[in-house]
Simulated scan of single mutants.
Amino acid sequence: MPDPSAVDATAAVFADLREEGLELDTLVGQLPDPDWARPTPAPGWSIAHQIAHLHWTDRAALLSLTDADGFGRMVEEALKAPDSFVDEGAAEGAGLPPAELLARWRSGRAALDEALGAASPDTRFPWYGPPMKAASMASARLMETWAHGQDVADALGVRRTPTDRLRHVARIGVRARDYAFAVRALPAPAGEFRVELTAPDGTDVWTYGPPDAPQRITGPALDFCLLVTQRAHRTDLALTATGADADRWLGIAQAFAGPAGPGREPGASR
């Protein structure tokens, strides 16, 4: 019999993903067509590219959950152009009329939500990195939706109100520490770091790692999430590192799979 608390936690992740999508939908749902062409902080990407990319990756997640062979073929196509398939997928969707792109993104979100709810909670589904359970896949989709939503918000000059949904982004960022080193061919630090992040409510503190770890990161959860999604440069954020390895991590952290991103220039965000 499934653990009721685990079932409740999984359902909460799915609900948070729905809410994150709806928040971004409120930013773009009523945009005039010309505004979809506004440039975002990602070089060469407009608002339309950002939404098209989210639709593309939602479709990939849906295939993973419902059609492993179809997902495998999608991966094979991506491997033919590993340096350009992400941009090509975004460009293809960005070329659609905004109303059609918006409708496809909404339909894809709904289909993914249904598939996540129907998925066996203990099954690991294929992905571009290690296979993931449905709850982890939902967390990853939330992280990406939030990050690309930040690009859209920056393009529109909107300051979003951070929510406790950032907990998912922060957790992925912490867990991806060693990956950030590995993707740069750097040795992973020995031992865990202590990470203490002030939640959006200003009072709660989210903690990760041993409390007595000699190396640590402290600061606002929002700033940490902006850092690990590479939506802001560390010099623009109120994060403090104790220890040489922790300090180095702040310069290379990334919560997403794939090659090391270039990040943002100082002063380019928020």
Rank of each mutant, 00 (worst) to 15 (best):
L101G: 08
L101V: 12
L101T: 11
A103G: 11
A103T: 13
A103I: 13
R104T: 08
R104F: 02
R106G: 06
R106A: 06
G108Q: 09
G108P: 08
R109S: 04
A110D: 14
A110Q: 13
A110S: 12
A111T: 04
A111D: 10
A111N: 04
A111Y: 00
A111G: 02
L112A: 00
D113M: 10
D113W: 05
D113L: 14
E114S: 12
E114G: 12
E114L: 11
E114D: 14
E114I: 07
E114C: 04
E114R: 14
A115F: 07
A115Y: 06
A115E: 11
L116Q: 08
A118W: 04
A118R: 15
A119Q: 00
A119G: 02
A119L: 00
S120Q: 07
S120Y: 01
S120W: 01
P121L: 03
D122N: 03
T123E: 14
T123P: 01
T123I: 03
T123A: 14
R124A: 09
R124W: 02
F125D: 04
P126N: 10
P126S: 09
P126K: 08
P126A: 05
P126L: 07
W127L: 13
W127T: 15
Y128G: 08
Y128Q: 10
Y128L: 15
G129F: 08
P130H: 13
P130L: 13
P131L: 09
M132H: 11
M132T: 09
K133F: 09
K133E: 15
A134P: 13
A134K: 12
A135T: 12
A135Y: 05
A135F: 07
S136D: 15
S136A: 15
S136L: 14
M137A: 15
M137R: 15
S139G: 11
S139R: 12
A140H: 10
A140I: 05
R141S: 09
R141D: 11
R141G: 08
R141N: 09
L142Q: 05
L142G: 00
M143A: 01
M143H: 02
E144W: 03
E144S: 03
T145A: 03
W146Y: 08
A147E: 04
H148A: 07
H148M: 09
H148D: 11
Q150N: 07
D151M: 03
D151G: 02
D151K: 02
D151C: 03
V152L: 07
V152W: 05
V152D: 09
A153V: 05
A153E: 07
A155L: 06
L156C: 06
G157K: 08
G157D: 05
V158C: 00
V158A: 02
V158N: 02
V158Y: 01
R159S: 13
R159L: 11
R159A: 12
R160K: 01
R160Y: 01
R160W: 01
R160N: 03
T161D: 12
T161Y: 00
P162I: 04
P162A: 00
T163D: 12
T163H: 08
T163C: 07
D164H: 11
D164N: 12
D164K: 10
D164V: 08
R165T: 00
R165Q: 03
L166D: 03
L166I: 06
L166Y: 04
L166C: 04
L166H: 05
R167F: 12
R167A: 15
H168D: 02
V169R: 01
V169M: 02
A170L: 09
A170T: 08
